[in-house]
Simulated assay, not measured.
Amino acid sequence: MNTVDERTPCAREMRPHAAAFVTRVTADHRLPMDYSVASLRIVDFLIDGLRKGGASRERVRVREALSGLGAYVGEVLVRRAGAVWVDFDADQRAYFGQPVGVRMPDGRVWNPLGKVHNRFDLGGPEESLRTFYLTLHGRARKAAA
């Protein structure tokens, strides 16, 4: 189960948080993190690598990586599916275990940070972030640039 992390940026800080993460990852590893739907396969790959390495979510570097990956996944939803970052209210925070998420054009609320944590904790193809996007309800009909 995810828990709210006080260090997680608020909704207005998520876009720069994702951008800073992408800058670090692409500089260190030259990964094509271009906010495309296809790049979500890289997110799956990175999380699987953390899992296979036996990393614990409690390690600072792992928490930072998962936070950055969650921000990145959310930003893909913002840029490609017409979502907007939102701060969760108290009930949503309790339900999702995260302080922020995204609201889709149809009003549905999703938790990309939690989805990243699920991929890390549970693994497996059913937790794929790319599949999450492709089966996501509430996307805009035309992808935002």
Rank of each mutant, 00 (worst) to 15 (best):
W85Y: 06
N111W: 05
V109T: 10
A83M: 12
V109K: 02
D87R: 15
V109A: 05
P99V: 14
K115H: 14
R103L: 09
Q92F: 01
A81C: 15
Q92E: 12
A94D: 15
H117G: 11
R119K: 07
R103S: 09
D121H: 13
V100R: 12
A81W: 12
A81N: 11
A90N: 03
N111Y: 03
A90L: 01
K115D: 13
M104N: 09
L113Q: 06
H117P: 08
A81M: 14
R108W: 05
P99C: 14
A94P: 15
R119C: 02
W85P: 02
H117I: 12
D106L: 04
V100C: 08
Y95V: 02
R93Q: 13
V102Y: 02
V84N: 12
R103M: 12
Y95G: 04
R103C: 07
R119F: 00
V116G: 05
R108Q: 10
G101K: 03
L122E: 02
F120S: 03
F120E: 11
A83K: 10
L113G: 03
Q98F: 05
G82I: 03
D87C: 08
D91I: 00
A90R: 08
P99I: 14
W85F: 06
Y95Q: 08
A90Y: 01
F88D: 04
V86L: 13
G101E: 02
V100A: 08
A81I: 12
F96N: 00
A83Q: 12
F88Q: 07
K115M: 13
A81L: 13
V116F: 11
Q92G: 01
W85Q: 05
Q98G: 01
F120N: 02
G114S: 07
P105W: 03
A94V: 01
V100Q: 10
F88N: 09
M104P: 15
V84Y: 11
F120D: 09
V116A: 13
N111F: 04
D121R: 12
P112K: 03
R103N: 06
N118W: 04
L113T: 04
G107P: 14
R108Y: 07
D106R: 05
W110L: 10
N118M: 07
V102L: 03
Q92M: 06
W85M: 05
D106H: 10
V102Q: 02
G101Q: 03
Q92L: 10
D91A: 13
M104C: 09
F120Y: 06
V109M: 06
D91H: 08
F96C: 00
A81F: 13
F88K: 08
P105E: 03
A83R: 08
A83D: 11
G82H: 09
R119P: 00
G107F: 06
L113W: 05
R93Y: 05
R93N: 00
Y95S: 06
P99L: 14
G114E: 08
V100S: 04
D91E: 14
D89N: 09
G114Y: 10
Q98M: 10
A81E: 11
R108T: 14
V109I: 14
D91L: 10
R108P: 06
G101D: 02
L113S: 04
F96T: 00
V116C: 12
D106P: 13
N111V: 03
W110T: 03
